[in-house]
Design a protein around this nucleic acid. Structure first.
Lengths: 129, 129
DNA sequence: CTGCACCTTCCCCTGCGCGGGAAGGTCAAG
DNA sequence: CTTGACCTTCCCGCGCAGGGGAAGGTGCAG
């Protein structure tokens, strides 16, 4: 399998695959006689894992950590559990922040809708914000 | 007021003020005889407005739009109202996305906590994700 | 006189995840 | 023999909002 076929199979571009290799998410690819990269189904599984992880919101750095454990012959289960736990906390915090921000903006918007433009204070640029 | 004092007064760094000037959020500063930038309270108000806008989650591009209207001698009220409305929609969408993601991750985490590590399939890298 | 704190311009760096495009090699089909 | 679709390496770019640090000027205190 050449890189273009692997990219199609995994649903990404050749650029992305080379980028992953350079970043260390993939081991240096085997090469054919003419220097082309050659991939096995195993690599496709790896690429698919990366995609699934990204869908879960993990960063490439986190994914790299999981892969490295696998590559050292160990099972990454515990590590993955920790990462997922941290991801849950991060998401909760972000959602809380955005919800608080939404409340602030909603209030400003309400003020802006109700206010009389003639009360505009030039020194504040805009009194709603 | 020199740039350092202005930065202290507005709660930002001198780097940021110069950056805003280059980006067009601030008009080119007046200069003293030795070439130092000199600021008035009016500029501080402008910087404070920028900060308040950032707290509301606006981008510098949006803030620039508001300031430009002011600088053209008009009141930005209507424009600000539109921006706040869009901001509310954006926030709602982001919150919805994060909430959906949180549900996915929560499910994966529950699976990971309940699963037996011995069922780990090496070909999938990790069966929880 | 010397130090120190401040100012100036300049250009590069960060994090994140790639994308664009140049300049060139390879291979099968027509 | 040429075309076209692949592939290779290389380096630069984005978007966002600045930060780091060099190399040099300025102004005041001790």
């Amino acid at each position: 399998m050449r890189i273009g076929e692997a990219a199609d199979a995994a649903g990404m571009t050749t650029k992305t695959i080379r980028f992953y290799e350079k970043r260390g998410l993939l081991p240096p690819a085997e090469r054919t006689a003419n220097g082309y990269r050659r991939y096995s189904r195993e690599t496709i599984s790896r690429l698919e894992f990366i995609r699934r992880s990204q869908v879960a919101g993990l960063t490439l750095a986190q994914i790299e950590g999981i892969l490295r454990i696998r590559d050292n012959g160990m099972t990454p289960c515990t590590h993955v559990r920790d990462i997922l736990a941290k991801q849950l906390l991060d998401l909760d915090q972000k959602i809380a922040e955005l919800t608080a921000l939404r409340a602030t903006v909603a209030e400003q918007y309400a003020t802006a809708k109700a206010a009389d433009p003639r009360n505009c204070d030039a020194d504040l640029i805009c009194s709603y914000i």
